[in-house]
Computed example of a mutant assay.
Amino acid sequence: MDFGVTGKLGGYYLAEQYRKNAAGKSGGVSFAELAAAKATEQSDVSGMSFKDMWQARFPGAYYHTMDAYKIPQGAWQRYDFPHEKFFSDKVDESILNWKPSGAEPKLTDASVQSRIDSTLGKKAIVVPPALEEKMKNDPALAQQVMAKVESFIMKDQATLPPGRIYSCVVVLDENGEIAHAAGSSGGGNISGPTEEEQRQFEAEQAAKKKRREEYARLNEESALKRRLMEQEADERYYQTSMTKKAVSIAAYEAAGILK
C-alpha cells in the first residue's frame, strides 16, 4: 500500500505545510519540499508570494521593500553600519544614505558586539520594489530567487562551529541577485574561544569579506557588460537607420523625386 502524499490533495497538503512551517521543524521547511509540492500540484504553490515563501522558510524573519542594493559596498561592510535596523518591522529609508561619522571601530569593540548580540537568531531580507513586482508576475522567478537565497544562507551558516546562534540580512538587487549580505553569530560557547578558534573566526570573517567583495565585483562587471551591450545595440540601430535613410535618399534622387 502506498502511503505517499500524491495527487491534488497531496499538493495542497505540502503547500499548506510549507506555509504553516511544517510541525516539528524549528528552522522551517526547506525549499526542496516546496519544489516537491510544486511538482505535485503546480497551482497550489505558484500562488505563494516571495514574502510568503521567505517567512515560511524562516519563521519570524523580517521582510522589507526598498532599494538597499544601492548602498555602497564600502559603507555596508563597515562594522559601524547599522545592519541591526533591518531586524525590525519598519526601516527608515534614511539608512540608504548612511554615512560614517568617524573611524571604523574594531569587531571586538563593545558597541559592535552589543549590536551583533541584539540580532542573534534573526533573519531579514530586503527586496527592491521593481524585483517584487517582477516576482508577483513571474512565480518561477520568485522560486528561483528563494532557492538562491536559501542556498546562500545555508552555506554561510554551515561555516560556523556547532551551537552558534546565526543571524543574517540579505539584500537583493533588481535582477534577484544578492547585492549585499551580512551574517553574524554568537552564543554556544560559554568559556569563550581559544586562540586557535579566534584565529579561525578571524580567518573566516576575512574569507567572507573577500567573497562579498568578489561577488560585488562580478555584479558590477555584469551590469557594465549589460550597459555596453545595450549601447552597442543602440549604435547598430542608429547605423542601420542612417544606412536605410541614405539608400532611400539615393533612390529618390535616382528617380528624380528630390531634384
Rank of each mutant, 00 (worst) to 15 (best):
E133D: 14
G121V: 12
P59R: 07
H83L: 13
P128I: 08
L107Q: 12
Q143T: 07
V127M: 02
P59Q: 07
A68P: 06
K85R: 09
V145F: 04
R78N: 02
A61W: 11
L131P: 03
K123W: 01
V91I: 08
P100C: 00
Y79N: 00
V91F: 03
V112L: 05
K99T: 12
K136N: 08
I116G: 03
V149K: 04
S101K: 14
W98D: 02
K155M: 12
L141G: 10
D109W: 06
D89R: 10
F81D: 08
V127Y: 09
E104N: 12
I125W: 01
M53H: 03
S88L: 04
K122Y: 00
L107I: 02
P128A: 11
A142M: 08
L131N: 06
P100A: 02
Y69T: 00
Q55R: 08
V45K: 06
A142K: 04
K136M: 01
E133M: 10
S101I: 11
A68H: 01
S114T: 15
Y79I: 09
L131F: 07
P128K: 11
I153P: 08
E150Q: 00
P72V: 11
Q143E: 14
F81M: 09
E132R: 10
F86S: 06
R78M: 06
S151Q: 14
Y69S: 02
S46H: 10
T65R: 07
I71P: 00
A103R: 11
R115F: 06
Q73T: 12
F58E: 14
I95R: 05
K106G: 12
A103G: 02
K99L: 04
P139D: 15
D117M: 09
K106R: 12
I153Q: 07
A75I: 11
W54A: 04
A142Y: 01
F81Q: 11
S88Y: 00
V127S: 05
D156F: 03
A68Q: 04
G74A: 09
E104R: 08
I95N: 05
M135N: 04
A75Y: 13
M154Q: 14
K134H: 09
M135G: 06
L120M: 04
A124D: 05
M53T: 05
S88W: 10
A110T: 07
I125R: 01
S94M: 08
G60D: 11
R115D: 15
T108P: 00
Y62T: 14
S101E: 15
V126W: 03
M146I: 07
T119H: 11
N97E: 15
K123S: 03
I116C: 00
I116V: 12
D92K: 10
D117C: 07
Q144K: 14
